[in-house]
Simulated scan of single mutants.
Amino acid sequence: MLPIKQVHHIAIICSNYERSKWFYTQVLGFTIVQEVYREARQSYKLDLAINGLYQIELFSFPSPPPRPSHPESCGLRHLAFAVTDIDSAVSWLQSCQVTPEAIRVDECTGKRFTFFADPDGLPLELYEM
């Protein structure tokens, strides 16, 4: 068996670096660990942390092709983030002009969750713990 310890990071490619940087830091509240401009690739790489843990790499590239989110297809479906109070999290998103779906209840766990999208339409989920 492969001795995997944990998920190290999630890489996201965005179409508008400044817009996505603002969304992930100001709306979702991730902190910047490191920001690097890679001139040879004309690309930014922004390392982001959630509660002090390095989790997300945000990349920009010139003219990346769009990724369809609907209809659902093979591959990564969405990223889910744990919250303790989904009602206040939804209120925060709405105050930032982000429109989440209606809160639903997971039929398997009884926990509440909702979906919303990042600036490029990447499906994101809040899951109440």
Score class of each variant (00 low, 15 high):
Leu2Lys: 12
Ile4Phe: 14
Ile4Gln: 10
Ile4Leu: 15
Lys5Met: 11
Lys5Ser: 13
Gln6Lys: 14
Val7Pro: 01
Val7Asn: 07
Ile10Val: 15
Ile10Ser: 05
Ile12Met: 07
Ile13Gln: 09
Ser15His: 12
Ser15Asp: 04
Asn16Ile: 04
Arg19Asp: 11
Ser20Ala: 14
Trp22Tyr: 15
Phe23Glu: 01
Thr25Cys: 03
Thr25Met: 04
Thr25Ala: 06
Val27Leu: 05
Val27Lys: 04
Gly29Phe: 04
Phe30Asp: 00
Thr31Met: 04
Thr31Asn: 12
Thr31Gln: 06
Thr31Leu: 02
Val36Pro: 05
Val36Ile: 15
Arg38Asn: 13
Arg38Gln: 12
Gln42Asp: 15
Ser43Thr: 08
Ser43Leu: 10
Tyr44Gln: 12
Leu46Met: 12
Asp47Gln: 13
Leu48Met: 11
Ala49Arg: 04
Ile50Asp: 02
Ile50Pro: 00
Gly52Asn: 12
Leu53Trp: 02
Gln55Leu: 07
Gln55Met: 12
Glu57Asp: 14
Leu58Asp: 01
Phe59Ser: 10
Phe59Val: 03
Phe61His: 12
Phe61Ala: 12
Pro62Met: 02
Pro62Ala: 09
Ser63Ala: 13
Pro65Asn: 07
Pro66Trp: 01
Pro66Val: 07
Arg67Cys: 08
Ser69Arg: 06
Ser69Pro: 01
His70Val: 02
Glu72Phe: 00
Ser73Trp: 05
Cys74Pro: 06
Gly75Gln: 03
Leu76Glu: 10
His78Pro: 04
His78Met: 04
Leu79Val: 13
Leu79Gly: 00
Ala80Glu: 06
Ala80Leu: 08
Ala80Asp: 10
Val83Trp: 05
Ile86Pro: 03
Ile86Leu: 14
Ile86Met: 13
Ile86Asn: 04
Asp87Trp: 06
Asp87Glu: 15
Ala89Tyr: 05
Val90His: 01
Ser91Tyr: 03
Trp92Arg: 13
Trp92Ala: 11
Trp92Glu: 06
Leu93Pro: 03
Leu93Gln: 08
Gln94Asp: 05
Gln94Thr: 11
Ser95Leu: 06
Cys96Thr: 01
Val98His: 02
Thr99His: 05
Ala102Gln: 14
Ile103Gln: 04
Ile103Leu: 01
Arg104His: 06
Arg104Gln: 15
Arg104Trp: 07
Val105Gln: 14
Glu107Tyr: 07
Glu107Trp: 06
Glu107Pro: 02
Cys108Trp: 11
Cys108His: 13
Thr109Gln: 06
Gly110Gln: 06
Phe113Met: 01
Phe113Ser: 00
Phe113Asn: 00
Thr114Val: 01
Thr114Phe: 08
Phe115Glu: 12
Phe116Asn: 08
Asp120Tyr: 02
Asp120Leu: 03
Pro123Leu: 03
Leu124Arg: 03
Leu124Ser: 03
Leu124Trp: 05
Leu124Asn: 07
Leu124His: 04
Glu125Met: 00
Leu126Trp: 07
Leu126Ser: 05
Glu128Pro: 02
Glu128Val: 11
Glu128Cys: 00
Met129Thr: 10
